[in-house]
Design a protein around this nucleic acid. Structure first.
Lengths: 217, 217
DNA sequence: TCCTTTGTTTATCGAACGACAAACAAACCG
DNA sequence: CGGTTTGTTTGTCGTTCGATAAACAAAGGA
């Protein structure tokens, strides 16, 4: 199909990336269309023409966020050989992502729109759905460990353990937001992994014997 | 001193409580002065006369929040005999507070204003300060356990353990916000406490032997 | 070349924002 | 009772919100 009409003067991918940066810095409601227009270097009408509404833009932004910042933790879950290594590496990859010096120190999934005006209810539930996917992904990885034989059924329940590590991930975001360093997050992760052996009836290992050689991503 | 001039037609304490309910439901930026005026049944000018600015009102609201919803977890830390029981009871009291049927399911400290517009930076840092007090309170309680002799110095570091349980508390808020039930939070707390014995070099106890008779508040 | 198609700019919409000044209402003091 | 003090209401300030219509600009097709 031929390209008709006047071509765009801006690159939608670049613009989406710039929109991501702004939404990341200020959250959904904290970012206005004026802010976006200024940051993207185009008029707000062009944003509407290219991306639809503010909410549509935000959803596209979150999709990009998922394939960039969200990928390392997801890959950790996918590629590590055991459930234990996968959870540990996932936590570390998360800590890496939320303490990058060139980006805001928190996960957008968790803090971009937890509360807000009534009219933005749909956006909040959209993010809540993505967070639920997180929980599911962790639960699925534990189930795979069960199938692979590297994990015995935890007495507390597999869902409970999955929700527990999801809770830790989400708590890490608040910690990073409040200025915790990468090293401090690593300590928290060490503590969180200390629960693993008790939860999974594995032989306990003292914290100073933690497998720190595991790849963080 | 005599009461001069026209007396108030509304009760400031009642109004503050109503403002708390509204800020709790929608967060700081999500609540407008029009919303507040309507909920309190008075004009916005009366709010300014009585409470100052929106930010002043929010700070007073958070003080009330601290003495009401914040008290049970704080009391748990204070009154439980051992560090372990204190942390466990504090987590349970938190779970109780953030799943009450008559209030929003999350902690205002954590989710009322984690991100937002640049002009509300002061409010966010105010809340961050209160969250840091949380961390300090938990750290102090662990130190007391050390002094009382019911806790041996954790290899991971006392600060690390304090930050870990702070992270769990904050993660619980996100879980509750996303619809987790009180029972599900209890499971998460059980998992979080499973780390305790490993962290503190105490003899490990299986999760199914958890001291469920500890007072939740 | 001229028309169609598409993108961008400009201007603006109505509504809501936080905040306040002035006018009005109700209490106490003498 | 009049005068003072204080609280509340009314109206509105200038700004910003998300969103859009109309005018203008630049490309391809015939």
């Amino acid at each position: 199909m031929a390209t008709r009409g006047r071509p765009r003067t801006f690159d939608p991918d670049t613009a989406l990336r710039q929109a991501l940066d702004l939404f990341w810095e200020r959250g959904y409601e904290g970012t206005s269309l004026s802010d976006l227009a200024q940051a993207l270097g185009i008029a707000s009408a062009s944003i509407y023409a290219c991306f639809g509404s503010k909410e549509d833009l935000f959803r596209k932004v979150m999709a990009l966020y998922g394939t960039t910042s969200g990928e390392p933790p997801r890959r950790a879950l996918r590629e590590q050989p055991t459930a234990r290594a996968a959870i540990h590496a996932m936590l570390r990859a998360t800590a890496d992502e939320i303490t990058r010096p060139d980006a805001p120190h928190y996960c957008m999934l968790v803090l971009a729109a937890p509360t807000g005006a009534v009219e933005n209810h749909a956006v909040r539930e959209f993010l809540a759905g993505l967070r639920h996917d997180q929980l599911t992904a962790i639960g699925d990885r534990l189930a795979r460990g069960l199938a692979d034989g590297d994990l015995t059924a935890p007495p507390a329940g597999l869902d409970a353990v999955a929700r527990y590590y999801t809770t830790v991930v989400q708590g890490l975001s608040v910690q990073a937001r409040d200025g915790a360093t990468r090293a401090e997050l690593e300590e928290v992760i060490t503590c969180a992994m200390a629960a693993w052996d008790t939860l999974t009836c594995a032989p306990a290992r003292p914290v100073f014997m933690e497998d720190s050689a595991e790849s963080p991503r």
